[in-house]
């Protein structure tokens, strides 16, 4: 018999479910009194979006992007500049930053995706340093000194504090990112990406237009990283290039999917929640350098010893259990 297709939620149902979960989460958290919670939660959500975005190219397609910080910073700086120039509302800033970062992804991909995968990886590092140099020399965006962004005094939708509003926006963006990732995963597009990851030559010879698919994946992934950066200026209100291009974004965006598991949308989310929370705790209790050391050690440990990540353990455990019964 033809083995039955695994019964799973349709994309629409999944999207509705994710929205409901997100809404409940966002509303429920409003009862929390401590504002620090929202700062920490915002950061964890930021990482969730970044690692979900990274995974679309890294996990689904097998192309390593070290330039997460660059795409993130594109989102950050497009918000700063457009806000300073036109005072655009947050919604438009989010869309603009996403588009600019996505276009940057296409540009970089067009230059380097024809080559073997590690050239792309090296080029993403190059992009980060080039953009960093450009931004430090761009006076309008604050240059090396940095830029202040005045948080609007009026908090929209009656939120008591701006950070609570930002947190809620971020929950929405995270839901969006996860829904997009899951749709890709289960689509014909996603199957083409998986074929590229498994064997690019065989994929091309099976009719997969590999270059075009990689470009689209890079654009979506880069755009989503930009998306994560768009609200950031309002979160920290003072942005300097060193902070916006911090390597910790690149490292976390790789470490979280590697630790969580790279084949499904759940892996990066799981990795971001676990690693992000641990970092928030260590940051308060010990120091941020130790924090980064933990991330680095976990990254190297998982990638050498448990390449399937936590989801790999879960799936293996489920497979064992279903065999027994």
């Amino acid at each position: 018999m033809n083995p039955p297709v695994k019964v799973a939620l349709s994309n629409t149902r999944f999207a509705i479910l994710a929205l409901v979960v997100g809404a409940v989460l966002a509303l429920g958290c409003q009862f929390i009194q401590n504002d620090y919670f929202f700062n920490a939660a915002y950061t964890v959500l930021l990482y969730a979006i970044l690692s979900t975005a990274w995974n679309i190219l890294g996990g689904y397609t097998g192309y390593v992007n070290f330039g997460t910080a660059a795409f993130f910073a594109i989102g950050v700086y497009s918000s700063i500049v457009l806000y300073k120039a036109f005072h655009l509302p947050l919604g438009l800033l989010i869309i603009a930053g996403t588009v600019v970062a996505g276009v940057a992804g296409i540009g970089l991909g067009y230059l380097t995706l024809r080559l073997r995968g590690h050239f792309f990886a090296i080029a993403t590092l190059a992009l980060a340093v080039m953009l960093f140099t450009f931004v430090t020399n761009w006076d309008y965006a604050g240059g090396a000194r940095g830029a202040y962004v005045l948080v609007p005094r009026e908090v929209p939708f009656g939120f008591p504090r701006y950070i609570r509003y930002l947190f809620t926006v971020m929950v929405g963006l995270t839901v969006l990112a996860i829904v997009v990732a899951r749709i890709i995963e289960r689509s014909r597009f996603g199957q083409g990406l998986a074929a590229i990851r498994d064997d690019e030559l065989a994929a091309e010879c099976a009719g997969v237009p590999t270059l075009r698919l990689k470009l689209i994946a890079t654009a979506i992934s880069g755009g989503m990283m930009g998306l994560a950066g768009t609200t950031f200026p309002f979160f920290i209100s003072f942005v300097e290039p060193v902070g916006a291009f911090d390597l910790r974004y690149a490292v976390n965006a790789i470490a979280m999917p590697v630790i969580g598991g790279m084949t499904t949308w759940l892996g990066p989310l799981l990795g971001a929640i676990l690693l992000g929370t641990v970092q928030q705790l260590v940051q308060v209790t010990i120091s941020s350098a130790w924090n980064l050391l933990i991330v680095g050690v976990l990254l190297v440990g998982f990638v050498t010893l448990a390449p399937e990540g936590i989801m790999g353990w879960v799936l293996a455990w489920r497979a064992r259990r279903s065999k027994r019964s």
Binding site: A194, A195, D198, D199, A202
Partner: peptide
């Protein structure tokens, strides 16, 4: 292909 190239994760 002479050396089989399956999509190994599928």
């Amino acid at each position: 292909f002479q050396i089989p190239k399956p999509f190994a994760s599928m």
